[in-house]
């Protein structure tokens, strides 16, 4: 799915969270929205998902205007920063939620749903945890369950808000590789938000560096690092190790 962000702006109660920004996210690629906190990257991600409405501008999904498409019909797989797993449901129920929420005639049968849940649990390499509750999982396991839940509905794109933010360094490295593998296997257009330069540069095909509600530079990781377009990009990436 090709995502075209066309002059999207957003203000909350008079403060400008996003100045008009434009960005083209190619189909099947993995794009990182990179920037410090308050740069507007999460707001932009939520606007793509339909969780916020833009104050002005348009979102085009595969060329069709989706600016006012309700969140339920955008078919995005969204992984929240704190994962937002349903705490009163088991892992199986969490993953099956999107399939069970469908209207009756589009809903798969019970057997089909459990088969899909099994497949997804295998995909995230946690086949044994289906009956547990989220509170009984480690941080890394929760993140993978959130990913499986987002993939269950066969979304058109995968959006992740600081997907590795709350994890320790070793788990983070494992999960990064896992996300890249899942991305490559499914071919889903993926956008993730991060404040970690190294994460963005090592994982993404395309990086959009953001600051103060503006996109400073868009490019391949190597381009952005070798030819920073602005002083901000230069100083922000300085701390990252060379690729």
């Amino acid at each position: 799915m090709h995502i075209e962000i066309d002059e999207i702006a957003k203000s909350f109660n008079g403060t400008q969270a996003l100045h008009p920004v434009s960005l083209s996210i190619p189909s099947g690629a993995m794009t990182a929205l990179l920037g410090p906190s308050g740069s507007g990257k999460t707001t932009l991600l939520r606007i793509i998902a339909g969780l916020e409405t833009a104050s002005s501008g348009r979102i085009l999904l595969d060329g069709k205007d989706a600016t006012f498409t309700p969140v339920q019909q955008r078919r995005t797989g969204f992984v929240f920063q704190s994962y937002a797993l349903f705490r009163h449901m088991t892992v199986q129920e969490n993953i099956a939620y999107g399939l069970r929420a469908r209207p009756r005639r589009e809903r798969p049968s019970g057997e089909e749903i459990s088969r899909r849940v099994e497949c997804l649990l295998a995909l995230i390499q946690l086949p044994e945890i289906g009956r547990r509750y989220p509170s009984q999982l480690s941080g890394g396991q929760r993140q993978r369950v959130a990913l499986a839940r987002a993939l269950a509905t066969e979304p058109r794109m995968l959006l992740l808000d600081e997907p590795f933010g709350a994890l320790d360094a070793r788990v983070r490295r494992d999960l990064r590789a896992g996300l890249r593998e899942i991305h490559d296997a499914t071919g889903l257009t993926t956008v993730f938000v991060t404040h970690d330069q190294e994460e963005a540069l090592s994982l993404a095909d395309q990086v959009a560096v953001m600051s103060m509600g503006r996109i400073e530079q868009v490019g391949q990781p190597r381009d952005v690092q070798e030819r920073p377009a602005t002083e901000f990009v230069k100083s922000f990436l300085e701390t990252a190790p060379a690729l």
Binding site: Q72, G77, S82, Y97, G98, A101, R149, A152
Partner: peptide, 13 residues
């Protein structure tokens, strides 16, 4: 609101 938003992105009315 996170869990409610998660339900919405998964297609729930």
């Amino acid at each position: 609101r996170a869990e409610e938003e998660a339900a919405l992105t998964l297609g729930a009315s």
